[in-house]
Simulated assay, not measured.
Amino acid sequence: MSNKLHQLQSLFHSMDRALIAYSGGIDSTLVAKVAYDLLGDRALAVTADSPSLLPEELEDARTQAAEIGIAHRVVVTHEMDNPNYTSNPTNRCYFCKSELHDTLKPLALAEGYPYVVDGVNADDLQDYRPGIQAAQERGARSPLAEVGITKLEVREISKQLGLPWWDKPAQPCLSSRFPYGELITAEKLQRVGRSERYLRQRGWKTLRVRSDGDTARIELPPDEIQAFVSQTDLDSLVTAFRDFGFAYVTLDLEGYRSGKLNRVLADLPSARSSLLRPQPDTLQ
Rank of each mutant, 00 (worst) to 15 (best):
residue 267 D to S: 11
residue 268 L to A: 13
residue 215 T to G: 08
residue 212 D to K: 12
residue 58 L to W: 03
residue 281 D to N: 06
residue 58 L to C: 07
residue 223 D to M: 15
residue 53 L to T: 11
residue 13 H to P: 00
residue 166 W to I: 05
residue 126 Q to H: 15
residue 46 V to H: 11
residue 265 L to C: 09
residue 221 P to Q: 05
residue 82 N to M: 00
residue 12 F to P: 00
residue 174 L to K: 10
residue 24 G to F: 03
residue 280 P to A: 11
residue 207 L to Q: 05
residue 130 P to M: 11
residue 103 T to A: 12
residue 242 R to K: 14
residue 264 V to F: 06
residue 115 Y to R: 00
residue 229 V to K: 04
residue 191 R to M: 14
residue 268 L to T: 09
residue 148 G to D: 12
residue 111 E to T: 07
residue 142 S to W: 08
residue 208 R to K: 08
residue 241 F to Q: 08
residue 115 Y to V: 00
residue 180 Y to G: 07
residue 179 P to N: 07
residue 49 D to Y: 12
residue 81 D to K: 15
residue 54 L to M: 12
residue 91 N to W: 07
residue 208 R to F: 12
residue 47 T to F: 14
residue 79 E to Y: 14
residue 253 L to M: 07
residue 140 A to S: 15
residue 269 P to G: 14
residue 44 L to C: 01
residue 184 I to C: 02
residue 85 Y to N: 04
residue 99 E to I: 07
residue 89 P to S: 09
residue 236 S to P: 02
residue 241 F to R: 06
residue 160 Q to G: 06
residue 31 V to Q: 03
residue 48 A to T: 14
residue 240 A to T: 09
residue 68 I to T: 01
residue 37 D to Y: 02
residue 36 Y to C: 06
residue 160 Q to P: 01
residue 145 A to S: 09
residue 140 A to N: 08
residue 28 S to M: 13
residue 277 R to Q: 14
residue 212 D to R: 15
residue 81 D to R: 15
residue 228 F to E: 08
residue 32 A to N: 03
residue 194 R to P: 01
residue 248 Y to L: 03
residue 205 K to N: 09
residue 183 L to A: 09
residue 234 L to Y: 04
residue 96 C to T: 01
residue 175 S to P: 13
residue 53 L to W: 05
residue 195 S to G: 11
residue 94 Y to C: 04
residue 264 V to M: 10
residue 66 A to K: 15
residue 97 K to W: 11
residue 52 S to G: 05
